[in-house]
Design a protein around this nucleic acid. Structure first.
Length: 427
DNA sequence: AATCATGATTGTTT
DNA sequence: AAACAATCATGATT
């Protein structure tokens, strides 16, 4: 009000002070011009201004009519331009300043995540990489397809909702924007509104709507997270690995019994062979080591079995390479190794194998561990071993098992410090 | 359903 | 960070 009064005042030096602008007063006499022409003019302007000032006090119809009348008034363009000018000088400077558009990091994060989850990205297309990864993480390739498709279905559902909502907001935003713009445009005929101001208004609207969109994105993200966690929880619904996979793993384990710590590369290879993930391989070895250590006797049979297996394969591979007696002790390439494990005895423990004893392989010492098992200590065998001092499981834990071992050099290669162990044993 | 086997998770240790 | 140990939760067996 204050400002208005000031503006008015500056216009043609008309003083409104006298007129009670504020009250809901009746209009002044239509044309009460008293005095000279100049005076009449002034009066005229004052009249107009008064009408303008009081236009909001009137009923809608009345105001509309008056507005129209004013619009047609001969003084209108002049007045209007002056108003515009004044406004330009005063109003805009006040809040024309802060028009930053800092890219909200939060929004960026949400966008990225939605993209990664395949919600925001291109439609369809076999789902996202994220899903595939998650699916792969679940392990067993084929049999999780049910859960997988379930997951995918729910995700597409989320995506659909997301997209329709987004579109709805977009549309609403556009509608509202055009509506406001029309309004402003229309008002700009009676009220000084600069294009800048309109732009500002539009910006405000857009910002409001984008904040709504952000909420949508946020809740969508949440939904995806929940779904995902639920899906990943399905990991807990474990499935046993395939027979073949456990076979491969066991083979590795028992053929590296002295140091069952596959390197990263070895894990990768095993994972590939078993079509499971590396971390699953790690889990498996973690479980296996600890369970083996915990109750060695329980695993003896298995150990023998795999020892035999690998021995067979090894023998196959190496064929008749060495038929010489074990006399050639010098062969032991990494002989030292045996000692290297911390569980010196462990090496022998699992060995005695009943079935194997057929002992065909006995002589060949091609490869380290594998053979060593096969060959086994002469002890002969058989269930007797549980009690046998030599096999006492304690041996392993005695010094804490594998762990502090001074790394046997060759992890990957089946050849390990085999030689040492048996050499003395039986024969 | 009771039990064992086994993959995964969690918390601690090294 | 990797390994261990304890534990959970489910699959398979009995």
């Amino acid at each position: 009000m204050d400002e208005q009064a000031r503006i008015m005042q500056s216009l043609g030096g008309v003083t409104l002070a006298g007129h009670s602008v504020q009250g809901g007063m009746a209009l002044p006499p239509p044309h009460g011009h008293e005095g000279t022409d100049g005076d009449g003019r002034k009066q005229d302007i004052g009249d107009i201004l008064h009408q303008i000032m009081t236009i909001t006090d009137q009923s809608l119809d009345e105001a509309q009519a008056k507005k129209h009348a004013l619009n047609c008034h001969r003084m209108k363009p002049a007045l209007f331009s002056v108003l515009c000018e004044i406004k330009e000088k005063t109003g805009l400077s006040i809040r024309g300043a802060q028009e930053d558009d800092p890219p909200d990091p939060q929004l960026l994060r949400l966008d990225n995540m939605l993209l990664a989850e395949g919600v925001a990205g291109p439609d369809k297309g076999g789902g996202s990489a994220a899903i595939a990864a998650a699916a792969a993480a679940v392990g067993g390739g084929a049999d999780n397809s049910i859960e997988h498709s379930d997951y995918r279905a729910k995700l597409t559902q989320i995506r659909q909702i997301y997209h329709t909502e987004l579109e709805k907001y977009e549309q609403a935003c556009n509608e509202f924007t055009t509506h406001v713009m029309n309004l402003l445009r229309e008002q700009s005929r009676t009220r000084p509104i600069s294009p800048k101001e309109i732009e500002r208004m539009v910006n405000i609207i857009h910002r409001k709507f984008s904040s709504i969109q952000m909420q949508l994105k946020q809740s969508t993200c949440e939904a995806v997270m929940i779904l995902r966690s639920r899906f990943l929880d399905a990991r807990r619904k474990r499935r046993n690995f395939s027979k073949q996979a456990t076979e491969v793993l066991n083979e590795y384990f028992y053929s590296h019994l002295s140091n069952p710590y596959p390197s990263e590369e070895a894990k990768e290879e095993l994972a590939k062979k078993c079509s499971i993930t590396v971390s699953q391989v790690s889990n498996w070895f973690g479980n296996k080591r600890i369970r083996y250590k915990k109750n060695i006797s329980k695993f003896q049979e298995e150990a023998n079995l795999y020892a035999a297996k690998t021995a067979v394969t090894a023998a196959h591979a190496a064929a008749a390479a060495v038929q010489s007696s074990q006399a050639n002790s010098p062969t032991t390439p990494n002989s030292g190794s045996s000692g290297s494990f911390s569980l010196p005895n462990s090496g022998d423990l699992y060995i005695n194998m009943p079935s194997l004893n057929g002992g065909s392989y006995a002589s060949s010492q091609l490869s380290g561990d594998t053979l060593r098992h096969a060959v086994g200590p002469s002890v002969g065998y058989n269930d007797g071993l549980r009690g046998h001092p030599l096999y006492s499981p304690h041996a392993l834990n005695g010094n804490g098992g594998w762990h502090d071992t001074t790394a046997p050099s060759s992890v990957t290669s089946p050849a390990e410090g085999a030689a040492s162990v048996h050499s003395d044993t039986s024969n």
